[in-house]
């Protein structure tokens, strides 16, 4: 067992964990500011300069609120639900390559926790178990609104997983690898384009499915306040509610990172090789580039939320099963045909 490697990975995991939480916290601030911008309001501006301490104030509020566990609920599962949701939200970040490697002398410090040979499949496995937290939490609350929200969440996730997986198959056909780092590196260098250029339809399908899997508007049907009070988290209070809400923002951060890595060149940008930077500077620049892309996509998630109205549940199911699945099958056929007749 290589202890240096283990220590390196442990440090990297802690850093990614802290960054995920930090970005998620400031996403809540960003969401309010963007909502305010789009609705011609001011947004939070009381706590600290420009309201920058608002996430801190929210955190303190969540921690100090009264903790309520309904008497008729299943207490064990009631606590497990939000915890599991948080864990699955954080797990996906393990396979994202955050930048080029740092070099200390001869020693290479890779900015990816695990370069799995089956990286994309790991991503898919974590996404497919991501619904359990909501399902368990909603069921354990012993409340009809929560149960309905949980059922909606699970059926929505099952439906959109299919087209998400099939849009990824077309991506795998052109990148010839399941490893996320290979896919990112395949989008850089001479004659290689970002995958969004080569897979426009696949990207569109993946983006829509990412919105649905992250339970974001316009697909936030599991928590529609106008029909289901609060959906699956109706009975939750204090930090357990905080975990549910927070995990949604972490999901958004990780989905943005995945979209950027799979379709927008990850930590590469056109012309990065022609600058002739020393390896460590190039690594810092590549991390900054990836985070710029991620922040753009987080902004995009929020922009869509405050622009589009919510879907109806039957519309959601129709879109998933009757539009996206046939489209993704067509996309696979087109990609396969292109590869057969024109080469890569």
């Amino acid at each position: 067992m290589d202890w240096i490697l283990l220590a390196e990975k442990a440090i990297l995991v802690v850093i990614i964990f802290v960054i995920s939480l930090g970005i998620a916290a400031y996403s809540t601030y960003g969401e309010r500011k963007i909502a305010a911008l789009l609705q011609d309001r001011v947004g939070p501006n009381r706590a600290g300069p420009w309201g920058l301490l608002q996430p801190l104030a929210d955190g303190v509020k969540f921690f100090t609120k009264e903790e309520i566990i309904p008497t008729a609920s299943d207490k064990f599962l009631f606590i497990i639900g939000p915890s599991l949701f948080m864990v699955t939200a954080l797990m996906t970040s393990a396979i994202i390559p955050w930048g080029k490697s740092f070099y200390f002398g001869d020693h290479e410090f890779s900015l990816q926790v695990a370069d799995l040979n089956v990286g994309i499949l790991y991503l898919f496995a974590v996404v497919s178990i991501g619904g359990y937290g909501i399902m368990i939490g909603g069921w354990a609350s012993n409340n009809k609104y929560s149960l309905l929200g949980a059922l909606r969440a699970s059926s929505q996730m099952i439906s959109y997983e299919l087209s998400m997986g099939m849009s990824l198959i077309a991506l795998l056909l052109i990148s010839n690898s399941l490893s996320v780092r290979d896919i990112v590196d395949g989008q850089a260098g001479d004659g290689n384009m970002w995958n969004v250029v080569r897979q426009p339809l696949g990207f569109l399908i993946f983006l829509i499915c990412a919105f649905a899997e992250a339970n974001r508007a316009p697909f936030d049907l599991p928590e529609t306040e106008s029909e289901l009070v609060g959906g699956y988290h109706t009975e939750y209070s204090s930090m357990k509610l905080g975990l549910f809400l927070f995990a949604e923002y972490i999901n958004m951060f990780v989905s943005s990172a995945i979209i950027a890595s799979l379709y927008f060149g990850g930590y590469h940008f056109p012309g990065i090789d022609s600058l002739n930077l020393s390896p460590n500077i190039a690594a810092i620049v590549s991390v900054a580039v990836l985070f710029a892309k991620i922040i753009f996509f987080i902004f995009f998630f929020m922009w869509v939320r405050w622009t589009l109205p919510r879907f109806r549940f039957d519309q959601l199911m129709n879109l998933g099963w009757k539009v996206l699945i046939p489209l993704s099958i067509i996309n696979i056929l087109l990609t396969g045909g292109w590869l057969t007749f024109f080469g890569n």
Binding site: F124, A150, L151, M157, I158
Partner: peptide
């Protein structure tokens, strides 16, 4: 874990 058990859970719920 991802597909079949979700359906099981669904039915039990």
């Amino acid at each position: 874990a991802g597909a079949i058990m979700v359906l099981f859970l669904f039915v039990v719920m």
